[in-house]
Computed example of a mutant assay.
Amino acid sequence: MGLPQPKIESLPFVTAELNYLAPIAGKPRTYAFDPPPGEPKTTVLPEPHEVPIFDARPIAGEISLDRVGFALIRHPTVVKNFYDDKEVRAVYYPAAEAFLKATLKADRVFIFDHTVRRRVEGAADVRGAGPRQPSTNVHVDQTERSGANRVREHLPDEAKELLKGRVQVINLWRPIRGPVRDTPLAMCDGQSVAPADLVSSDLIYPNRNGENYTVKYNPNHRWFYIPEMTADEALLLKCYDSATDGRTRFVPHTAFIDPTTPPDAPSRESIELRTLVFHRR
């Protein structure tokens, strides 16, 4: 069950514009490199909708990954420089892996990549050219197919056995500096998302094709954010779950422009780890 509507409606909220998927012909696709001549970089076109985005801090103790698909956690770190890839992999990865294994009571956690983001007004979002820009389209990082394929891609020798158990793709998202006032992250209550809202979209890389979900607008969606997140806080976001027993399996999310952000607020800086979480049946 999701959160009760009367309780949600009593929460503080902001009204902001979120970019859903506009109707297009054919399967949406995005190139992660310069596309072939005559091809657009992406066929994913935004369809903006103004929605209420509720402050989840007052109910943080009632939200969980399995119930709504995201959770606020306290997660201090000793990392000095999140822009140093070597330090992130040597210091942050093992600490995060141990933390997630204990917190989620998992048998195993495997971190397969990370992305650092810093908003730069007017700059293009270019892969491999320094920090990425915050993603401002409503999306889910994985699909039914690509979530399982992550196991086959990263742990090929063990994939057959691992896929017999429960597999989740969980993002660990945190501010690099806080409090975050600029382009915070909005998360949709997974129980308010209908299967038909999720549209499989191709992600085309030089050496492989992946998939994510772009998302169609549904007025039943319930959106939340955590205002002014600090550098000792983090969010867990569920991007895939092989369980089919009523748990939330996919959680749409996006950065958004908060209309209450002070004009002199520092630009948002954040890092997200993408992890495979395994439970034996």
Rank of each mutant, 00 (worst) to 15 (best):
A96N: 03
V199E: 10
D84S: 05
T136E: 15
A124W: 02
I176L: 08
T136G: 02
A123Y: 07
G210F: 04
A159H: 06
G147A: 08
R247Y: 02
P94D: 05
R74Y: 14
Y205H: 13
K86N: 12
P94K: 10
L72R: 08
V126Q: 03
D202P: 09
K216E: 00
I176V: 14
F99G: 14
V193N: 09
I111P: 12
E153N: 08
G147E: 04
L276I: 11
A102Q: 15
R89S: 11
A124R: 06
R152V: 04
P262S: 05
R274M: 08
A25M: 13
P195Y: 07
A123K: 05
V126S: 04
M1S: 14
L21F: 09
T230I: 00
D182W: 02
R132G: 00
L273N: 10
E50Q: 15
D258W: 15
A243S: 11
P28W: 02
L162Q: 04
E39F: 09
H279W: 13
F54V: 01
G38H: 13
K80R: 14
G38C: 09
K238C: 04
G246S: 03
A148M: 13
R145I: 11
P48D: 03
E269C: 10
A231Y: 02
V251I: 09
A123R: 06
R127P: 01
F224K: 01
P52M: 05
I226S: 02
E272I: 06
R249V: 02
K238G: 04
L18F: 14
K105S: 08
A124T: 02
P175S: 08
K164T: 07
E17N: 01
R29A: 10
V277Q: 08
T15W: 06
K27W: 04
K105M: 05
P156D: 12
Q168Y: 00
A22F: 09
T103W: 13
G69W: 07
H139C: 01
P36W: 08
P28F: 01
T244R: 15
R57T: 13
M1N: 11
M229D: 11
